[in-house]
Amino acid sequence: MLRSLNARATVVSLLFLAVLLGLWEINSHAPAASSAKSEYELLMGGAEQETRVPPPSAVIERAVEELSDPFYDAGPNDKGIGIQLAYSIYRVLSGYFMAALVAILCGFLIGMSPLMYKSLNPYIQVLRPISPLAWMPLALFIIKDSEASAIFVIFICSIWPMLINTAFGVASVRKDWVNVARTHELSPWRTAFTVILPAAAPTILTGMRISIGIAWLVIVAAEMLVGGTGIGYYVWNEWNNLDLTSVIFSILMIGVVGMLLDMALSAVTRLVRYQE
C-alpha cells in the first residue's frame, strides 16, 4: 500500500520509463529475416538494419562503458565524456559569471535611476532577442580566438535575463523599505547592500536561473560551431562518426548536467527567498 504521493509518483515514473524503453527496444531490433533477402538488400549487405536508431540496451551499455572511465584522454578526437562536459561547464560558468557581474552592477544602476532605465531600455530591447550564435562571426573576427568567442557567446546570451531581472527587482523594491533606510540615515552603499540587495535578491536569482538554462542550451550549439572540445563538439563528432549510440548517450548527459545546474541555482534561490 503506497500512501505517499511521492512514492506513487515514483512508481508511475518508472512505469512510463519501462514502457518507453520497452517500445524503443522492440522497435529498434530488425524484424527477423523471415523471407530471403531481396537482391537490393543483398547488394547493400543488410545495411537497412544499420539505419535504425540504436536500442536503449546499447545506449546503457555505452553509458556504463563511458562513465566507468570518464576522464581518459586518447588524443584530440578521443576524450572521455567527463573531460568534454568539464570543458563545456568551464565555458558556461566563466561566461555566465562575467555576465552576472556586469548584469547585476548595471541592473542596479538601471533599476535605481529612472533616467537610465528609460534611456537604456531601447538598446536592451533590441539586443535581447538576437540569437547568441549570430554574434559568433563578429566575435571570431574581433577576438580572433575560438575558445574566447564561445565564452563571449555565453556571456552575451546570459546577460539579458539577469540584467532585466535585476533592474526590475531593484526598481520595484517597496517604497516603505527604502523609507526605512532613509529614516535610519543609511548611506547609499549600506542601503544598497542591506535593503535593496536582499529585497531584490529573489528576483535577481530568478534571472540567474533563467540565464544558466539559456547558457547551457547555447553552449552545445556554440561548440558545434567552434569545435575542438566540449559536449557540443562531442555530439557533432559522434554524428560524423555515425556513432548514434554515443549521440544519444551525450544527449542524455546534456540533460542531466542542465538539470544539476538548475538545481544548484534553485537551492541558492531558496536561501534568499523571503515571505512578505
Binding site: D176, W177, N179, V180, T183, A199, Y274
Partner: peptide, 15 residues
C-alpha cells in the same frame, strides 16, 4: 535618525 517613524503597514524588513 532624530525622528523615528512607525508606519501603518509596519515596514519591517521581511528577510
Amino acid at each position: 535618525l532624530q525622528r523615528g517613524v512607525v508606519f501603518q503597514n509596519y515596514s519591517l524588513l521581511p528577510w
